[in-house]
Design a protein around this nucleic acid. Structure first.
Lengths: 298, 298
DNA sequence: GGAACCGTTCAAAATAATTGAATGAAGTGG
DNA sequence: CCACTTCATTCAATTATTTTGAACGGTTCC
């Protein structure tokens, strides 16, 4: 028994009429006649009473009541699988590093869910090493973070570059000079608050400052970037933080650009080279993020 | 999409194996391969991961979970309709006259339901005229009663013949004579309790007695046959009642046969000639009753 | 009485299902 | 390491089925 036959049966009952059912389903009239005859012979039961007007038999009524829900269920199932295949639905597991996870990403995700309301998303927030590890193991579909240390088997798609600004308390020595920017060298004069060892921003920063010989003698290590802001506001020292973290600027602080372009760090999408091109729901989120950032740039 | 394909899919998942599924369904191996390939292309989704061992994909798992209940529902529906077609299930509306309805019929119906537990039965109890009327109108499938007055368009199938016995109080004049039977003529000497005008037994009785000139001058009309017994027991008179009503014989009464064979009445199955042969569930009950009575006779 | 509509029939054509034999890939046991 | 088995797949050929158009017979509705 074929679902097409059930569909014909449904339309015949709805229209009370073989001809209109055939028309709606783009069949020739004889086709639906044959379909119903075969159906009746399969079931061993007459479905319609053929008089001047056709009418459901008792068996036909029973069959209608029970078969239409079956048909609807199958149609729903086909749609669900279709969505899954087209990427309209499904499950994407992605990893995001801080501070992106707390700043740009929420808004992006909100806009994405407006376009693809049926895609379920899991966001794991961790440092780049953890993310790349899980991406390689297939536990995450892709990630949003800085350029990974071990790029083997990984594809990196740059999205945006973050400039580091120097966040200082309003009454800090470097702030009072009235200058609008600071040279790297002056950093040695202050205590620098930095994030944990695992933070990719910290590593980027450390590498850059050591190359310049500007790494300050006094540092203090604060676990997270968002917490770090409050230590600066409290006057414990200065910190180099990505621009996105400074919205809103903490009370009693100033953000100064570094002279000569300062330090920049590029974030982007990370996935297994083997997984390119991504498929289904994952591809939709990946492409959405890519598109959003190229649009922003242009 | 065909239910045969779903069935193959089910068996493949159950056996974890194309080959065994093909074997069980008596398909060639290539058939199930083709079926699944078509199914996958229809759904736009791969159902199995083809490695050393086949395994369901995520989509395949989803499809399995949802499609198998659909398949089961359809199989159940087919069985239900099959039962309906074969007469294993369905609804029979029949009419029965008293006193058969209260005596032989309950036991027959019990035995029938043991053979056909899924047939729903409605029993209407009424006089033959009402029954034949409803049978002709199609409101009843068939009836069990006496030969109908208007036999046009009706078929009557005799089942059994009931002898009328004279029920008298133990101390009744006709009982005290020590004789084992009574002639019709003696009936004039007693008050005769008779049932209502509509009762076929009453009409049969009245006709027979008037022909013989034995209709007694004193009668009393009591609505129902089963009530009538108690009036006899109370000493109000004698009554001619079918043998079946006299089990059990009411306290303080005697049942005397009429001399010379007495009065008999034939009961049988009544249905529309146009409906012969009966179909489905109705035929099963009709044939069952027929068979039970011919067996009893032989 | 004639036009329009409907369901059905029939033979032909188009499409789909099924098969057996061959192929290749993977596991098994000596 | 090499037969040996098992298994899914491919391919061409066969078989079954679905679909169609045209014609037919019935009914309804002016």
């Amino acid at each position: 028994m074929d679902f097409k036959t059930l569909k014909s049966f449904e339309k015949i009952v709805e229209h009370g009429n073989f001809a209109r059912a055939a028309e709606e389903l783009a069949y020739s009239p004889s086709t639906v006649t044959t379909q119903i005859q075969k159906l009746e012979s399969d079931l061993g039961v007459l479905l319609f009473e053929r008089g001047k007007k056709i009418a459901l038999t008792e068996a036909g009524r029973l069959f209608y009541e029970q078969s239409i829900p079956i048909l609807k269920n199958m149609e729903q199932l086909q749609k669900t699988l279709g969505d899954l295949a087209s990427g309209e639905a499904g499950h994407v597991r992605m990893g995001v590093t801080e501070p992106t996870a707390s700043h740009q990403f929420p808004g992006l995700l909100r806009r994405f869910t407006e376009v693809y309301p049926h895609i379920r998303i899991s966001v794991e927030i961790a440092g780049t090493p953890v993310l790349t590890d899980k991406i390689l193991k297939g536990e995450l579909d892709f990630g949003l973070g800085s350029f990974p240390d071990s790029a083997a088997q990984l594809h990196f798609e740059p999205l945006f570059t973050e400039e580091f600004l120097l966040l200082v308390p309003k009454d800090h020595a470097l702030a009072r000079e009235g200058s609008n920017s600071v040279t790297l060298g002056r950093l040695r004069e202050t205590r620098l608050l930095i994030t944990a060892q695992s933070c990719p921003y910290r590593r980027k920063l450390e590498t850059a400052l050591r190359e310049e010989g500007s790494f300050p003698p006094d540092t203090m290590e604060i676990g997270s970037m968002s917490a770090l802001k409050h230590y600066v506001a409290e006057g414990l020292g200065a910190a180099l933080v990505p621009r996105m973290v400074l919205d809103p600027l903490p009370e009693g602080t100033l953000a100064l650009p570094m002279e000569g372009g300062g330090i920049n760090m590029t974030c982007g999408l990370i996935c297994r080279s083997a997984d390119l091109p991504l498929k289904r729901a994952g591809k939709n989120l990946y492409d959405f993020l890519l598109h959003e950032f190229t649009r922003q740039k242009g």
